[in-house]
Simulated assay, not measured.
Amino acid sequence: MPVLRLTLVLGLALLSACAQKSTTSLALHQKQQSQCPLTLHTGQQLILRMPSNPTTGFRWLVRDSAANVLQSLGPEVYSNPEDAGLVGSAGVSTWRFEAIQAGEGRLHLTYERPWEVGVVPAQRFDCEIRVK
């Protein structure tokens, strides 16, 4: 009977350890692009925050999402600072990703007016992503 009890306890401990998922996240802002290339671990989340003002017609467009190593956790979320309250004030666009497998990819965004063809983007964000 003690062997059965020990096996049960060890089995539950193993299941508990397997059920825990890495919940650490890394927040990255446009001005931190110098930290690239960026190394993440499988299961780690990346939160990308970019200054944005869609009322001017400019938007951040994801050109390359490093889909071979990152999975999007939802669409872009735009928010205004709480204290602004002014129509046309700038805010922040946020994307959430999770590192899904080891490898390398490129996270590349451009800040532009989508209807302006042949115009150089006002800003770029380009970061190599390495997942271990």
Rank of each mutant, 00 (worst) to 15 (best):
P2F: 14
L4G: 15
R5P: 08
L6Q: 12
L8V: 08
L12S: 11
L12E: 11
A13Y: 05
S16M: 12
A17C: 10
C18Q: 11
C18P: 06
C18M: 10
Q20A: 12
T24N: 03
T24M: 06
S25E: 04
L26A: 09
Q30L: 14
Q30A: 15
K31R: 15
Q32F: 08
Q32S: 13
Q35V: 04
C36A: 09
T39K: 06
T42K: 01
T42Y: 01
T42L: 00
G43E: 01
Q44A: 05
T55R: 11
T56K: 07
R63A: 10
D64M: 03
S65H: 07
S65R: 09
A66M: 03
A67E: 05
N68G: 11
N68C: 06
L73K: 05
P75S: 15
P75F: 04
V77N: 13
S79Q: 09
P81Q: 06
G85Q: 04
G85Y: 01
L86P: 08
S89E: 05
T94F: 00
W95C: 07
R96Q: 15
R96C: 10
A99G: 00
A102M: 03
E104S: 15
R106Y: 04
T110G: 01
R113Y: 07
R113W: 04
P114N: 11
E116L: 15
E116F: 13
G118I: 08
G118P: 05
V119T: 14
P121I: 13
R124T: 08
F125C: 02
R130P: 01
V131Y: 00
K132R: 14
